[in-house]
Each structure stands twice: as C-alpha cells, then as structure tokens.
Amino acid sequence: MSQLPPYATVGQRAWYYGFRVICAFIFFFLIAPILVIIPLSFNAENFFTYTPGMLRLDPEAYSLKHYRDFLTNPEWTSAVWNSVRIAPMATLLSVSLGTLAAVGLSQSHVPGRRAIMAILISPMIVPLIISATGMYFFYSKINIVGTYWGVVLAHTVLGIPFVIITVTATLVGFDKSLTRAAANMGADPVTTFFRVQMPLILPGVISGGLFAFITSFDEVVVVLFIGSAELQTLPWQMFTGLREQISPTILAAATILVAISIGLLTTVEILRRRSERLRGMSPG
C-alpha cells in the first residue's frame, strides 16, 4: 500500500488517503505541543495563552521580555549555571566508565554477561522515584545529600545505561581482526584501543555521551530529592515554576531547550549515519 496502484477501487482510494490523514493527525499530535509554546514565549503579556493581539500578528503583542528575564533573573541564571556545571561532569564520568565496561562486555567470553548487563541497565528501568528515594536514604547516610558530587554521582549512574547500550551496539559491528592486526604490528593494547578501536566506535561513544548529557540536563526527580537550594538545576526551576505557575519565563526556557534538543538530535542523526557508513565499509 506504499503506492496506490492505478487499478485501485474507490474504497481503496478512500482508505489510502484516509489512513494518511489519520497518520497526519498523529504526527500533528506529536509535534504541535512543542511548536505551540514557541510563539507563546514571545508573548508581551504575562499570560500562558495567545492574546488577541498575537492572533492579529500585532508586533506590539510580541516582545522578548521573557527572554530578558530568563537571561537576567538570578534564579534562572544560577539554575542554568548549575545545570551546566553538573551535566558535563556526569557525562564525562559515565562515558569513560561506560565505554570501558562496554569494551569489556563485547569480548567473546564474559562470565555472567547477562546478569552484569541487567544490573548496568537497571538505572534506566527502575522508576526514577524509587532511585531517588533509595539515593536520598543512602546518600544522607554518607553525608553527600545536597552536595555537588552527590548530584553528579546520581546523574552519572542514570546516564550509564545509555552509554552502555549505544556503545555495545556500535561494538557489535566492530571488526575484531582490526585489533588483532594492530597487535600483530606491535601495538600494545592501550595504543590499539586509542588509535584503532576508539576512532571507529567514536560515533557510538559520542551519541551515548549525548544521551547521558541530556539525561542529566533533563533530570528533575532525583535532583529534587538529593539536591539543595544552591544546587537548583534548570529543570528543577521549571518544575517549581510550573507547579506554582509563576511566570511565562518557563516558556522562554522551554523554547531554548527545544533549540538545544534540535541541535542534539541533528548531531546524533549525523553520527548514526556516519557509523552506519563506517560499518558498511568494514569487511565482514
């Protein structure tokens, strides 16, 4: 049914177009909520909805005031700063530990591989509220609740499954004879890893890193529990803002975040295609 044959009956034609209309609606449902908030963030009023002026496309009804507030209000700037401080550190940790473990997991003989994998993936499966509860109890015992490293530690764990999944997926297509060839030519394992294996799996590592980054950058439940007032991240600020409905600055923040996600999505897509191309080139 991907292409309508010339002999299709009226009913078939109706179903063919009808189906496409239904799908169009679903796509609309997926994307519209995200697009709707973008114009609203330029609202000159402090409303969460379109004003008559906005609908008339009156330039007076639009303004950048929410963006100005976002960029100057210390509550928001410190939230952005905290997010920017926490996410890269958590990403760095989960990528370095995760890549190492993924390389280990992709070896041909790993005892208890399935169980290890299940444990490493579990932070993604266990509901965040449960992870947050457990971490709150346990981290307060070792006195790292409310500290920078406490939050980094928690976010690192939450990012690890994504790194493991993407990197092991990339390693499945990795041609092992390349490392043997490198060893044969006298390279030690460390050199082999950095000069041969790493460049080839780099797309997977980077997209795993991006997933880990967005996980930390987007995370709110755990940080609500184990963070502190000085460690309010951007999502935290948005969450409290939404609960108390303070100002449409949230929408400005949301628009900026959408722009960031478009950037991330593009990067991941480019990396995925590059990885597929590299895999296609390698023999076997």
Binding site: P33, I34, V36, I37, L40, F48, T49, I214, F217, D218, V220, P235, M238, F239, L242, I250, L251, A254, L257, V258, S261, I262, L264, L265, V268
Partner: peptide
C-alpha cells in the same frame, strides 16, 4: 529528544 519539562509545560499551556 525534547526535555520532559518542556513537553509537560506545553500540555499545561
């Protein structure tokens, strides 16, 4: 890829 908070705020709006 869009932040969960962004999508939730969109639905609130």
């Amino acid at each position: 890829w869009t932040s969960l908070l962004v999508r939730t705020s969109a639905w609130k709006v």
